[in-house]
Amino acid sequence: MIKKLLLFVLLAGAGVMFWTGISDYEVKQDLNPIASYYADQGLEETGAANLVTAVVVRYRGLDTLGEVVILFLTASILGFFLIKRDGKNDFRESSEILKTASRLLEPIIILAGVYVFVNGHLTPGGGFQGGAILASALILAYLANPNDSISKTLLKITESFSGLSFVIIGVLGIILAGGFLDSTLLPAGSIGNLISAGVIPIIYLFVGLKVGSELAGIVTNLKYAPKNESE
């Protein structure tokens, strides 16, 4: 009880702190200098109409690389901790309706995911969202055919290949163009076309494949984790 009271006092103090922060907060009228530079020059320098994409891939490309590395580490630690020791897990067979519907829906969902991350430089969307949609297509496959195993090596190969290509494109940018992940490696093209914005669509393709295979790997590891047999 005294612990809860103490915690309440602590949180109330934090709330008062935040409250003073809010009451001092002034509604902004202008962008700060960096953001206005991105908004002014982003289209010319990168050719991406979606400024968030320009920031994620070009200006903060190293952050994105670090983020992808963190995700890779998470997936590998997860796989390390959840090694399957016993035989195969038995799942209840799913119904015929779900199987047919999943066969009908999976291509549509995969197509939607690819659309989202290929069009990342023009419309809202990009590698992370498209990767999540791809992973959801794989989860639907798991739900429909729970006893079929999907090859983990395919996931691993996709993941490693796309990660390697991401780094290679970045290094090629240092050699051939202005810097790491510079998008002027390829000609910029006309703004608004699908093939434009230099290497940004290619980078987002690899980011999407990598994120999708990693999220699918996380779900696969959790699915085949050994069940609690004790008691």
Binding site: S94, S95, I97, L98, A101, L104, L105, I108, L143
Partner: peptide, 13 residues
């Protein structure tokens, strides 16, 4: 089309 396919299937499951 997407709603027509997914909604009944999910409720069935």
């Amino acid at each position: 089309i997407f709603v027509i396919i997914t909604n009944p299937v999910s409720s069935h499951v």
